[in-house]
């Protein structure tokens, strides 16, 4: 049974009138927990009136160097995060 929680990206609207800004990431088991963690971690100094959390794996990012040959698929996987790659459990040493 996994005790590893997925990664979420956090966006905070600091004050009414401003847009949501990316502030970092955190781990949570579910959406409700992610919101609470985001609130506890990123708004301790009244820096937030609204929180968005998005699973990191859902983020689609542009390729900074379209023409360059890179190792990973360019249009998604915003990080080089190993857990974004689904490998069957039976395969060892990966």
């Amino acid at each position: 049974m996994s005790d590893d929680w997925p990664l979420f990206e956090v966006f905070i609207r600091a004050r009414s009138g401003l847009e949501h800004k990316h502030v970092g990431s955190l781990h949570a088991a579910d959406a409700r927990m992610a919101i609470e963690h985001a609130r506890d971690v990123y708004t301790r100094r009244q820096e937030g009136v609204s929180v968005w959390v998005v699973r990191s794996s859902e983020i689609i990012a542009s390729d900074p160097e379209e023409a360059e040959a890179l190792f990973e698929p360019a249009r998604d996987k915003v990080y080089r995060h190993p857990t974004f790659y689904e490998i069957p459990d039976e395969v060892k040493n990966l």
Binding site: D4, R80, P82
Partner: peptide, 12 residues
Amino acid sequence: SAAETLGVARAE
């Protein structure tokens, strides 16, 4: 969070 952007998971 910053370290994870470089390809290493927090669990690791």
